[in-house]
Amino acid sequence: MSRKRKFDEQQEGEVDMTPMLDIVFILLIFFIVTTSFVREEGLLVNKPKANKAQKSDSPIILVRISSTGLITFNGKSVDIERLAARIESFTAKSPTTSAVVIPSYETTHENVVKVIDEIKQFEDIIVSIGK
């Protein structure tokens, strides 16, 4: 009787993992096939062509953004709220069609987008991003 008991205990401990692995792989395939990938919209940036550089006599609006969020407009410090007014007064004195935004490496994307949005209020100004 003791021999039969050892044999029964040994068989009770074995579990076949193959069906469970099959189910896991089927679920994995199901989720991969049914997943829909969403393409995220980004910010459109106009990059100038290097080989077609044209020399223009019109002045350029130069906006720099420091790592702390300090904005300078043609070398003078300005708040984000007053940037549009500065651009408007600058274009009234000397018409221009281009603006260059030069962010610092540590600048947050939020600050860069805010500055570009302020410049984009003027439809005739083309915005470029520099280093």
Rank of each mutant, 00 (worst) to 15 (best):
T91E: 07
D57P: 07
I125G: 02
V33H: 04
T72A: 11
G130F: 07
S67G: 10
E118L: 03
E81M: 11
Q54F: 06
M20I: 14
D16V: 03
K114Y: 02
I126Q: 06
E118V: 05
K47P: 01
K131I: 12
S104K: 05
S2F: 12
F30D: 03
I60G: 01
S89W: 03
N46Y: 09
I129P: 02
V127I: 15
T35N: 11
Q121H: 12
F73P: 00
K4F: 10
T108I: 09
A84T: 15
T108K: 13
R86L: 04
S128W: 07
T91F: 06
I129N: 03
L27W: 05
K131V: 12
I116W: 01
R5V: 13
M17N: 04
E81R: 12
E88Q: 13
V63Y: 01
Q11M: 11
L27I: 09
N51A: 10
T108V: 10
P103H: 06
D8T: 04
V45L: 13
P48N: 09
M20V: 14
T96S: 15
Q11P: 00
E12D: 10
D57C: 08
K114C: 01
A92Y: 11
I26F: 04
I61M: 06
H109V: 05
V101W: 02
S36H: 14
V63L: 05
S58T: 13
S104N: 15
E14I: 12
I23A: 13
K131N: 14
V112I: 14
G42Y: 11
I71V: 15
M1R: 06
M17S: 06
I71C: 04
K49S: 09
R3N: 08
L44N: 13
L28F: 09
I60W: 08
N111W: 07
M20N: 10
I119T: 02
S66R: 01
K49M: 04
V115E: 00
T34L: 14
I65W: 01
T97A: 08
I80D: 02
K52M: 11
I23Q: 13
E81P: 02
K6W: 05
E81F: 12
V78I: 14
E81I: 14
V78F: 00
S89C: 05
R86H: 11
T68A: 13
R5G: 01
E88Y: 11
S77T: 15
D8F: 09
D16H: 03
D8K: 07
T108F: 10
T96K: 03
I61C: 02
E110G: 07
E41I: 12
A85D: 15
V63W: 00
K4M: 08
T34Q: 13
V78C: 01
Q54N: 12
F7V: 11
T97L: 08
K49V: 06
T18N: 09
N111E: 14
V38T: 12
I87F: 00
Q54W: 02
Q11G: 06
P95T: 03
S98V: 10
L83P: 00
T35I: 08
E123K: 15
D124F: 13
L43S: 08
A50T: 13
V101E: 01
L62N: 12
Q10N: 09
L44K: 14
R82V: 07
K114D: 08
I116S: 06
V33I: 15
T34Y: 10
